[in-house]
């Protein structure tokens, strides 16, 4: 079996990915909202609030999607030797 398909590494890789993906979307969402607030719209705090909410949604959605791509997860029942 080529090492890139070793379930141990694949699983560990996925696990490490999801955590930072959640965090990064939060940072980007909040950051974009803050920039809109401070420099463009002068609408403190609403841009950041909406941005954070969107960031949370994006993060969870990404985590969900990458979990669904996981070989052996319920929806795509691939043969898992």
């Amino acid at each position: 079996m080529p090492p890139s398909q070793d379930p141990f590494y694949a699983g560990l890789g996925q696990a490490v990915r999801i955590g930072t993906d959640l965090l990064a979307s939060l940072i980007v969402g909040g950051g974009l909202g803050w920039v809109l607030d401070t420099y463009l719209l002068d609408s403190t705090p609403w841009g950041m609030v909406v941005g954070l909410v969107l960031g949370v949604i994006a993060g969870i959605r990404n985590a969900y999607r990458s979990a669904m791509r996981w070989p052996g997860s319920p929806p795509d029942t691939e043969s898992k030797e």
Binding site: V16, T20, D21, L23, L32, G51, L54, G55, I57, A58
Partner: peptide, 22 residues
């Protein structure tokens, strides 16, 4: 569209932060 924009922009950040933080 905003959600997808955020998750696209989050890609380089999560890539950089993950390696650095670990």
């Amino acid at each position: 569209i905003p959600i997808e924009l955020i998750s696209q922009l989050a890609r380089p950040i999560s890539l950089a932060v993950r390696l650095f933080a670990n």
